[in-house]
Design a protein around this nucleic acid. Structure first.
Length: 462
DNA sequence: ATAGGGTTAG
């Protein structure tokens, strides 16, 4: 009897290994059927079995399926543990549901499961990603109070979160603090710092940290190089960026599609289509898995070349490969169709986007508004603007420019003032267009109102 | 389970 139980435990462990392999490969349906077969054969799944499956569901952006696994394991008499809840919290984070993550954390406590450092890490990460840095910090304080020791990932999560929520200076200070008191910093810390500093415009600091990385005895990895490359493209050092990429190819350091996407989209932006195509072929030859961001990059490339059919072929490939389109995809589609003069087709994509449940996608709306304005259909543009939940600087810049172009300066000045009142802004060229238009049309009253609104806005911003 | 890639106005 004892020996039999031991053998069953061994078999369970073997099953877990197989299950994990299936999950890693994305064969979730097969993993599920393996579990069902195992139960039917009398092989008892344990907490690891369920956790493996659960985390795979969460990683596939299906939190509900993950939660369903918890119910199944409870029914089977297997108690969830910290790993279970950590995966669920990470899943809530992936879907951008901070309240859900907090609920899960509470539920964890109620079930008598003690959170570990990873529970706090996942929760903090979720709060930072959904732009609640103060709450994230409260979680960190709670962690200290409960006597849970932070690990290296904890600090990296906080650094990354501070950058993402616009607190670059705080992140930089904290990084120096970690170094000074000898808290753990590693390659992930350095990459986080370099990326964050680059994106917040502090390139000088980024370069300094990059130099320190070598002195600290860490070897830069592919992520470091991709980050640096992106930074080069962003700040107009195009040749350096390309050289970095070529040396990565020659060295055989590229193991996924990230660097290819970076360089392809930079080339498309520059209009260097032949080179973009060259790297597109290299990407194909590399046999890398194409995910959503890859497809988006490639669809954008095809639209830019005017190859509409190829773009839609890629969209089909996406669907067949069960890669879901997202707000980027729709922005690229709407923009691409607009730029090719197919405004009606673009409108259709916008509606199907709403049906898909991707709401208030500002970028896609902005693209259509801009196209409508450029084809002098300003009233349709205004109507569309009124249906938008969120508007930004792009929205108003396009509309204001469009109204000026058809000589409707009074309307343009009205929207400019609405925009400023909402705390948005428009490009300087749009402001100039309104002012000179009002002046030439002799709308003195509007002119005065606009100028005082601009003055107030500048005053409030500084 | 923390770090890198994808979209819009002039």
């Amino acid at each position: 009897m004892v020996r039999m139980r031991a053998q069953l435990r061994l078999s369970t462990r073997l099953m877990n290994v197989g299950l994990a392999a299936l999950c890693r490969g994305g064969y979730l349906v097969r993993a599920e059927s393996v579990l069902i077969d195992a139960i039917r054969l009398g092989l008892p799944p344990d907490v690891v079995t369920y956790n493996t499956l659960l985390s795979a569901h969460c990683r596939a952006d299906d939190l509900n399926a993950g939660v369903a696994v918890v119910h199944r394991m409870r029914e089977a008499g297997v108690s969830p543990d910290a790993v279970t809840y950590n995966s669920l919290i990470a899943g809530a984070s992936r879907e951008g549901l901070p309240l859900r993550a907090l609920d899960l954390f509470e539920e964890m406590l109620r079930s008598g499961i003690t959170p570990d450092a990873w529970s706090y890490n996942a929760l903090m990460h979720c709060l930072f990603q959904s732009d609640h840095p103060e709450d994230a910090y409260r979680v960190f304080a709670d962690m200290a109070e409960k006597g849970v020791a932070p690990c290296a990932t904890t600090y990296n999560t906080i650094l990354n979160g501070l950058f993402k929520t616009g607190h670059a200076t705080n992140a930089y200070r904290m990084f120096r603090y970690l170094q000074r008191v000898g808290l753990p910093t590693g390659i992930v810390t350095y990459n986080t710092m370099i990326n964050g500093l680059c994106k917040s415009g502090k390139v000088g600091y980024a370069r300094m940290v990059l130099k320190e990385l070598g002195r600290a005895g860490h070897a830069p990895n592919i992520i470091t190089y991709t980050t640096v490359m992106k930074c080069c493209f962003r700040y107009g050092r195009f040749d350096e960026g390309l050289e970095t990429f070529l040396s990565l190819i020659e060295g055989g350091y590229i193991s996924d599609a990230f660097p290819y996407c970076t360089v392809i989209s930079a080339l498309v932006k520059k209009g260097r289509m032949q080179e973009a195509n060259t790297y597109c072929e290299l990407l194909e030859q590399s046999g890398s898995m194409l995910d959503r961001a890859c497809y988006n990059t490639l669809i954008h490339l095809r639209f830019h070349e005017g190859k509409l059919d190829d773009a839609f072929d890629l969209l089909d490939m996406m669907e067949k490969g069960h890669v879901e389109s997202d707000e980027y995809t729709f922005s690229i589609l709407v923009n691409g169709l607009c730029k090719m003069g197919q405004i009606e087709a673009a409108e259709k994509q916008l509606w199907s986007m709403e049906i898909r449940g991707i709401e208030s996608n500002v970028v896609a709306y902005n693209c259509l508004i801009d196209a409508l304005c450029k084809s002098h259909e300003v009233d349709a543009a205004i109507k569309l603007l009124h249906s938008m939940k969120l508007k930004d600087d792009f929205t108003y810049t396009s509309l204001v420019h469009g109204l000026c172009k058809v000589g409707r300066y009074h309307m343009a000045s009205k929207f400019l003032r609405i925009c400023l009142r909402e705390g948005n802004n428009v490009l300087a060229s749009a402001k100039r267009a309104v002012i000179s238009g009002l002046r030439s049309a002799g709308f003195k009253n509007d002119l005065r109102k606009v100028q005082s609104a601009l003055y107030m806005a500048r005053f409030l911003r500084s």
